[in-house]
Design a protein around this nucleic acid. Structure first.
Length: 733
DNA sequence: ACACTGTGAGTTTTT
DNA sequence: CTCACAGTGT
């Protein structure tokens, strides 16, 4: 068996796989065999004996993608003497950092904290610095910190040149210090600290660069500056890098991803070869045409032409639903029909997680089995996180974050007053909470009741430490018993509590599987921290609900892209600046997930925040970018429940889909560019605005009023005001 | 210390 | 609607 596997590839793909020496950029359009390139190239390198398997490093963004590749490589190459490292950026970071943590002043058993931990830490920071969440909501503080960490290669951010961020720099500084003191890293640190390690310790960098002689990077368009720098560091000694990507599918700018990384690859890596893959093997012609038409409105891209030999396929169905409920109903009915026809592999894709609710509800009523990816996942449940914190705290009591989480869960009489005291003492003595607690109890530093409660807690942790040598799952079971956690749930005697118990049982099962695979506590904790919900997504489920972001890299015979409304998709918060191009790419990603059949739906009215009335919405401007001969439009009628929404004087029912003789099925607001002129960056539903007198508010409703536009705005604390756009000097924020 | 209540505020996307 | 929080009462 020599080079048979090359027969599966087209000419361009073969060129990409056969190029083994030096930098290579593979510009791979949607559905053109991106994953195939990486897996076959790994195969090629090994079969041609260009290196040992364990000298190959392939980096992806999601565990799911990594797993998929591992599986495929295994299939291609039977038994292997060693295995290539196929890993996500983050888990690669963890791997390196666990080994060299001390060089950076961390302990090797550092903790990985996620968004929830970040929030807890930030609350503490606010408390310490006297910040109010009114000054800057914690959510935004997180994003400011993320920006600081992700925008540059070096680890010391320069705040002074950014007036928008510099007032909040103390928050960043204190946050980072608390993290360090807790021996913790957030997700961004996992990359950034790795880069720092490489910068400060050239020898370490070189050893990794020499160790991995061939580098393959998936989804290169989504790399942010630290990741980019990491890649360059790894390639430094050999430049054997294969970057695979597609700038049209760059959808992680909010995470600091910089599309220019892929656009300037050739100048970054002199002598780079470039291969373009333009044949699409996935979608029908109609779908591909629609996708191409949409994305060609973007300016920030290299033009390319995707083509396919696949049949034309059905027209794209566009459905104008009356309400979100109606939309879900329509999708459920269509889905039911598809299932009856023996179809499987139906994807319901949406912009934002909260949209899933209606579909879950209606699908439940229809008896349609579905799988939900994302949302509040297993590892984010309170009880699961508590249990993991117990593991951490018992294993290492100096883990402040874990200790704080479980010290009073279940309630055992250690409240805020006691905790504040403990915290202050720990600040004074510069020791961990645990040490402070131990010495404080000895010194009798607490009032009687707290003293006894803390004493009990201390005894509990010490008892649990006695179980440390048990296999992980038994260890966990023991802790849950001894801590009284299970008992407290039993006492509650509600359905919710019994669900929680089931979840904990499930966690014990996961732990057992880990033991069976020979993994230790540390790797168990790592995998739970880096786990994402996409990971256990099962290809065999016939109906799947997920966000567009989660859908990247997947494909479905049938796709429903729902909620195609101005303000939701494109999202109102991305309308200012050039965020619209990114939304358009997201739309491109969504459309190209589909193999044979695509439905696009939107709601003419949607409830916001579960408010009492449904507000009028405009169809997504992306719908207007699809040539009308590719679509088939239908819709449900909207009853005129509220006179203020009455559009009937302007068009007959259904309002947006008047059949006219000019041949265009599109309403006026769709036409090329016109919707963009009227609404892009303006005051659409959901947008946040600022009024010179009332301050900040949110647009609830927009309606035409003669030549002007009437805008309804909710100002927090002040109530709802209606105003005309031309008079009110509104500004987007 | 904690369980309860009402208030008010907030929904992009993720490792 | 659903979460987090403040303020109540025990």
């Amino acid at each position: 068996m020599s080079t048979n596997y090359l027969q599966d590839l087209n000419q361009e793909q073969r060129r990409a796989v056969a190029h083994t020496d030096g930098p290579l950029l593979v510009v791979a359009g949607a559905g053109s065999g991106k994953t195939r390139i990486i897996t076959y190239k790994i195969t090629h390198l090994i079969k041609q004996k260009l290196c040992q398997p364990d000298q190959i490093l392939a980096v992806t963004f999601t565990n799911k993608a990594a797993e998929e590749m591992r599986k495929r490589v295994e299939q291609l190459l039977f038994p292997l003497p060693s295995i290539p490292l196929i890993s996500t950026f983050h888990s690669f970071g963890v791997r390196v950092l666990r080994r060299h943590a001390r060089l950076l002043g961390y302990q090797p058993d550092f903790v990985i904290c996620d968004t929830e931990d970040q929030t807890r830490i930030l609350k503490k920071v606010y408390e310490l610095l006297g910040f109010e969440s009114g000054d800057l909501p914690i959510r935004e503080a997180r994003s400011v910190i993320g920006k600081l960490k992700n925008r540059s290669w070096d680890s010391e951010p320069e705040p002074q040149d950014d007036s928008e961020i510099s007032p909040f720099y103390p928050i960043y500084e204190r946050y980072q210090r608390l993290l360090k003191e807790s021996n913790a890293m957030d997700f961004d640190d996992l990359i950034q600290q790795t880069v720092r390690l490489f910068q400060e310790h050239q020898d370490v960098q070189e050893s990794y660069s020499r160790r991995y002689r061939y580098l393959l990077i998936d989804e290169y368009q989504d790399t942010n500056p630290p990741q980019y720098q990491l890649v360059r560091n790894l390639a430094s000694t050999h430049q054997n890098i294969t970057a695979v990507g597609d700038e049209d599918q760059a959808i992680y700018r909010f995470r600091g991803a910089d599309i220019r990384n892929i656009l300037r690859f050739e100048s970054d890596f002199p002598g780079a070869a470039v291969v373009k893959l333009e044949q699409n093997y996935r979608s029908c012609q109609n779908i591909l045409d629609a996708a191409t038409a949409i994305v060609s409105n973007n300016l920030e891209r290299k033009p390319k032409t995707l083509w396919t030999e696949n049949p034309c396929g059905d027209p794209i169905d566009v459905y104008a639903a009356g309400s979100a409920h109606d939309e879900a109903f329509f999708v459920a009915r269509q889905t039911e029909q598809c299932l009856k026809d023996g179809e499987s592999g139906i994807g319901i894709l949406y912009r934002a997680n909260f949209q899933s609710r209606h579909f879950e509800e209606i699908f439940g009523r229809f008896g349609i089995k579905y799988r939900l990816v994302g949302g509040v996942g297993f590892y984010h449940r309170k009880e699961v996180r508590d249990a993991l914190a117990y593991l951490r705290a018992v294993y290492n009591p100096h883990d402040n974050l874990a200790l704080l989480r479980i010290i009073n869960a279940p309630p055992r009489g250690i409240g805020k007053v006691t905790l504040d005291r403990l915290y202050a003492m720990s600040e004074d003595s510069q020791t961990s909470l645990w040490d402070t607690l131990v010495s404080g109890i000895e010194a009798g530093a607490f009032p009687g009741r707290s003293q006894r409660a803390l004493q009990t807690f201390l005894g509990l942790i010490e008892t649990c430490r006695g179980f440390r040598d048990l296999p992980l799952h038994l260890f966990l079971e023991q802790i849950l018993e001894s801590s009284g956690y299970i008992e407290a749930l039993m006492k509650e005697n509600t359905e919710e509590a019994s669900n929680r118990r089931l979840n904990l049982q499930e966690l014990v099962n996961v732990a057992r599987e880990n033991v069976d695979r020979g993994q230790n506590l540390q790797s168990f904790l790592d995998s739970t921290a880096l786990h994402s919900e996409t990971d256990d997504y099962d290809q065999t489920a016939s109906v799947t609900l997920m966000t567009l972001h989660n859908a990247k890299g997947l494909e479905f015979p049938i796709v429903f892209l729902v909620g195609c409304e101005q303000g939701l998709f494109p999202h109102s918060r991305s309308l200012s600046e050039d965020g619209l191009e990114e939304e358009r790419r997201l739309c491109y990603v969504g459309v190209t997930r589909s193999k044979k059949k695509l439905f696009l739906t939107y709601c003419q009215r949607r409830r916001f925040f579960g408010s009492d009335s449904e507000e009028v919405g405009q169809p997504s401007c992306f719908l207007g970018e699809i040539p009308s001969h590719l679509t088939r439009v239908s819709g449900s009628e909207v009853e005129n429940t509220s006179p203020s929404y009455d559009y009937s004087s302007e068009s007959s029912d259904p309002p947006f889909f008047e059949e006219d003789s000019s041949g265009s099925q599109s309403p006026d607001s769709w036409g090329e560019g016109s919707s963009t002129e009227a609404f892009d960056g303006r005051f659409i539903r959901g947008a946040r605005i600022e009024h010179p007198k009332y301050g900040r508010g949110r647009v609830l409703q927009v309606q035409p009023a003669g030549d002007d536009i009437k805008v309804t705005v909710k100002f927090p604390g002040l109530g709802i005001k209606k105003m005309l756009q031309s008079y009110a000097r509104l500004r987007l924020v």
